[in-house]
Amino acid sequence: MSTEPAVHVRDLHKHYGPKRAVDGLDLTVDQGEIFAVLGPNGAGKTTTIEILEGYRHRDRGEVTVLGQDPQHAGREWRSRVGIVLQSANDQAELTVDELVRHFALYYSASRDPQEVIAAVGLTDKARTRTRQLSGGQRRRLDVALGIVGRPELLFLDEPTTGFDPEARRSFWDLISGLRDEGTTILLTTHYLEEAEHLADRCAVVRDGRVVALDSPAALGDRAARQAVVRWTQDGLVRQEATDHPTALVAALAAQQPSGEVPGLEVVRPSLEDVYLSLIGEPVTNEPDLVLALDGVSTDHHPSAEALR
């Protein structure tokens, strides 16, 4: 029974007028894992997660969260789910301590409020009113309110937007700690390094559907991870993506009377490049790279032909 996935989504559709916010999305989150949904703004991340949280109704598709359809789930289901929404600035006049204590009352097996406040690093701010917290502290309070009920499944929607690097790192430790205690975590983010650091698996979402799904290290297909060899020929920059850069460089060198290949570069795409190619964003400082990556998925290799 415990092998039943925490979240199961098949062929999910949600349209707003002509806009297909979610367009045939599939997703399975196993119990006890941290699953990251990556994607640019407007890719359908928040719409998807809010359907899973029960806030929005889907147009079509199959959704099961902790064994129930969130659209019709009741109090018992809500007590097993923790939700951290995108930014909120409510309840400004209450203190951290008051809020965490109050929210703990909603659940039957709450965590100790003091321990939760300590876990998110707000012990010094326990008696501070919410309005006086910084953005990062506010976000950590959101997380405290999301986990005080000891949820089996925690949703985090862009939890670290606006954090400084140090705050982000301590936040990651907190989330890993929750996973180690057995909490399943589904988070959306547009920070690749966040997914890389936290997630067991991640899905890249683009135009309302999953375009890649794997562990962060294995993300992107083999072609997307090929090395790119770049050189200058007849005053033009040429490049080719290849599995065998050494052989290509040797072949190039053999063609040159001097044995030197002008403007030679061998570039391994970073995870960032892989991600950007998956979501179809131009790589800002390397406009050609995307073209090259797109090119390798077809059989046609114009730059390779130029060589022969």
Partner: peptide, 17 residues
């Protein structure tokens, strides 16, 4: 105001009836 600030949405996500 509570609705605008997201407070109601937060409450709706809890088991509070």
């Amino acid at each position: 105001v509570e609705r605008d600030e997201g407070g109601l949405k937060r409450l709706r996500g809890t088991p509070m009836p």
